[in-house]
């Protein structure tokens, strides 16, 4: 990899980890993971069951909500903040490509969010390690990977928002709106439209693929459940129509596209815009 990309990445990581509000967000996520793990285990024990299924469900829910929000806000604030302080023009005046700045920023945000996911899930794993069996390991791995994929996709979208907006306030507002849309809005919209417009399973599949948060959630469910009845309508359709390997590959590809396309868009936007 280009040494300049790594220089920008290191610089951005140094800046991000010093943000005053970041430890609070990381702490909140870690506490959320711990609480989920405890409550999940307690509810299973109350029913006389074993395993970590309930805890895993909670981790999926929190994993596809908080880290993507963090990634969107950090990604959106990075380039737009540098533009606002005229630091972006000083960087862009150096003998480097503008895409170097975008890639370095994206990698830095991804690294910080990945570390957050690692800390949160690591804390939960400490609680779950006493009861988790070998068969639970696959489920945990999938949850971690899908959360990382979703978060990195959100970082890419955030960086794109930072590249196309004029100032930090606009960028962060757009990031929060995007999070609402991806985490809640699109689901509600399609749920409302589906009966009225007679949207079939294929349209609902599209609804999953155009939303990285939903893609990550369904991917996790698909890979961790053996019973089609628990997959939900999207997961069940994917499983029965394409089979698990193809459905997993489709969702994985969708997440990869959600990473590559926004970063490419951010590179193009910064290349063609005045800074």
């Amino acid at each position: 990899m280009d040494a300049h990309v790594l220089r920008i990445t290191r610089w951005e990581v140094q800046r991000l980890v010093r943000l005053r509000w970041l430890p609070a967000m990381v702490g909140l996520f870690a506490v959320g993971c711990l609480v989920n793990a405890f409550l999940g285990l307690r509810s299973l024990r109350a029913l006389g069951l074993t395993g970590i299924g309930a805890s895993l469900d909670g981790l999926v829910a929190i994993g596809v909500l908080l880290p993507p929000l963090l990634a969107l806000v950090l990604g959106a604030g990075a380039l737009s903040g540098a533009r606002e302080r005229d630091l972006l023009s000083l960087l862009a005046a150096q003998p480097i490509r503008r895409s170097t700045i975008v890639l370095g920023t994206f990698l830095a945000v991804s690294a910080v969010v990945s570390a957050t996911v690692g800390l949160g899930f690591g804390a939960a794993l400490v609680v779950l390690s006493g009861v988790a069996g070998a068969t639970d390991l696959w489920g945990l791995t999938v949850v971690v990977l899908a959360t990382l994929g979703t978060s990195v996709a959100a970082a890419a979208v955030g960086v794109l928002l930072g590249a196309v907006t004029s100032n930090r306030l606009q960028a962060v507002a757009a990031a929060v709106l995007a999070w609402f849309a991806l985490a809640l809005g699109l689901d509600l919209l399609f749920a409302g439209l589906a009966p009225g417009l007679h949207l079939g399973p294929r349209s609902l599949l599209v609804a999953v693929l155009v939303n990285p948060v939903e893609t990550g959630r369904v991917l996790t469910l698909l890979a961790t459940r053996s019973d089609p009845a628990t997959l939900g309508p999207f997961g069940a359709y994917l499983d029965t129509r394409f089979g698990l390997p193809i459905a997993t590959a489709m969702l994985g590809s969708a997440l990869a596209a959600w990473i590559v396309l926004p970063v490419t868009g951010a590179c193009l936007a910064l290349r063609h815009r005045d800074v």
Binding site: A3, R7, W11, Q14, R15, R18, D86, L87, P95
Partner: peptide, 22 residues
């Protein structure tokens, strides 16, 4: 530039290291 704002928590050495590298 007329007025550039470096991150407040960064040190002078870190700023120079970045731009010397670039």
């Amino acid at each position: 530039p007329q007025d550039v704002g470096f991150p407040e928590a960064a040190t002078v050495g870190e700023v120079l290291e970045l731009f010397c590298g670039l």
